[in-house]
Design a binder for these strands. Structure first.
Length: 425
RNA sequence: GGAUGGGUGGCCGAGCGGUUUAAGGCAGCGGUCUUGAAAACCGCCGUGCGUGUAAGCGCACCGUGAGUUCGAAUCUCACCCCAUCCGCCA
């Protein structure tokens, strides 16, 4: 959500910011509504002030036994005058809100221009893709051959874009989640949190998933939404709150299932478990002081990178360009992991600084500043730390051996009872 | 699902048609006193919008939305949420 005052102050800058997102200029239209709204609001307030004064006079008159009939007549007439304004002001408010809430966040100046992912910038490369003495297989070939990854049964149970895992592969998915949570909580200061997987409309609105992206979510029969990521409940834990400045930064992490309708992605990544309606993810969220959010963005991105480094997976850090940066974000780093079976880097984490965009939607503030009393919006950030299902894929493809078995990365072995290799049993 | 209570500022809590400009307390901030601290005492202390160069002024907000009234935190209706008990259940 945008601050109307910022648009009022510099409409051209706002239009330029939206232009970077490929959107037409809207400030002129907003300003027309804003001017009318303020004049209508002022007119209404003057009438309300008069009404309040009359009511007070009538009250005093009644107590002292004076005749208040003339005053009451004026107040009754005034009420008629106010009706149209009382309707118009909220209408204008709603009209402005409808426009503002549909517009994406203003990009950080460091974000490169560009229409889509082809304009993203690789910021760093980590690890060397291993040279295989054989043709590396894709994860679903490996998993099905091991008898531990079953798409046919998942399809029978639920339809396309679901997976059944069994045995050591199921255990490795569990191990990955535990390992990631332990890393973030013990080494990086994140607070482990268990959150609802169903949220109400206000919560989905707060992070920017509603109203514009409702078709991406699964909605329940009682009007709730299955979370597409733990970012939604974690960030909204401070919705409506005024937190103490010393409580910042609040670093939170959660391992949850994530549910996405994948509307509009028909035909993409249909083989295997890369793109599913349900997948597990460790999420990090930070509620940060505005002065510190850029540093926290780096801290979170590093927290995700360290997971991949500990797992021995080659990856690169990518700065998303204007056209590829999400609705609520000002700047996003993607971590892309090397998948030898695909011969490509694929997204495994996304780390965004939303600054005050979500905070404004959910009215999340802190009290502090120089005088210790000022109230201002917090900054919110979120990052995958990392997608568990995709981490499983990456481990399988990078640690595969010619016979189709998979070496278990050292850091996961304590979580798997010491198992060193996953092989057909 | 049924029954009964409840939703008031950062927190607790009074108020149930008009001196409420929302009492009082806690927390917080400033001060007096003190070597320092504590205690005590004094003062300040909700959010948003509008308007003004500013000091300020105005309006709205007591879960949400409608309604009654000259006037609503207070009365009416609907809805939402929370708590407790019963029923069912992991």
């Amino acid at each position: 959500m945008h601050d109307i005052r910022a648009i009022r102050t510099d409409p051209a800058a706002f239009d330029a910011a939206m232009a970077r997102r490929g959107l037409p200029a809207v400030s002129a239209g907003i300003m027309v509504l804003d001017v009318e709204r303020r004049s209508a609001s002022t007119a209404l307030q003057e009438k309300q002030a008069r009404r309040n004064a009359l009511a007070k006079e009538i009250g005093q008159g009644k107590r002292s036994g004076a005749d208040t009939a003339a005053l009451e007549a004026e107040a009754t007439a005034l009420r008629g005058d106010m009706e149209s304004l009382e309707q118009r002001v909220p209408e204008l408010d709603a009209g402005i809100k409808r426009i503002l809430e549909s517009l994406p966040n203003v990009l950080d100046s460091s974000v490169p221009d560009g229409p889509d992912e082809t304009a993203n910038v690789v910021l760093k490369l980590s690890g060397e893709p291993a040279a295989f003495a054989f043709a590396p297989k894709q994860h679903f070939e490996l998993g099905e051959a091991l008898g531990m990854m079953d798409f046919a049964t998942a399809s029978k149970l639920a339809g396309a874009r679901f997976t059944v895992l069994r045995g050591p592969l199921a255990r490795m998915e569990r191990a990955l989640g535990q390992f990631m949570l332990d890393h973030h909580t013990i080494e990086r200061g994140y607070l482990e949190t268990i959150v609802p997987s169903l949220v109400n409309e206000a919560t989905a609105y707060g992070t920017g998933n509603l109203p514009k992206f409702e078709e991406d979510l699964f909605k329940t029969t009682d009007g709730r939404y299955l979370i597409p990521t733990a970012e939604v409940p974690l960030t909204n834990t401070v919705a409506g709150d005024i937190v103490a400045e010393k409580a910042l930064p609040m670093r939170l992490t959660a391992l949850t299932d994530c549910y996405r309708s994948e509307a509009g992605s028909a035909g993409r990544d249909t083989r295997g478990m890369l793109r599913q309606h349900q997948f597990r993810k460790v999420e990090m969220v930070c509620i940060a002081h505005p002065d510190r959010s850029a540093d926290e963005h780096e801290w979170m991105t590093r927290s995700g990178e360290m997971i991949l480094e500990k797992l021995g997976l080659p990856y690169r850090r990518v700065l998303l360009c204007a056209g590829d940066t999400g609705f609520a974000s000002t700047r996003t780093h993607d971590l892309e992991v090397w998948l030898p079976g695909q011969g490509m880097y694929r997204e495994i984490s996304s780390c965004s600084n939303c600054k005050d965009f979500q905070a404004r939607r959910m009215n999340a503030r802190y009290r502090g500043g120089a005088d210790g009393k000022a109230v201002a919006f917090v900054h919110t950030l979120n990052a995958s730390g990392v997608a568990v299902g995709r981490a499983l894929i990456a481990v399988m493809e990078n640690y595969q051996q010619e016979d189709g078995s998979i070496v278990v990365p050292e850091v996961l072995r304590p979580y798997m009872g010491g198992m060193a290799v996953i092989a057909r049993g």
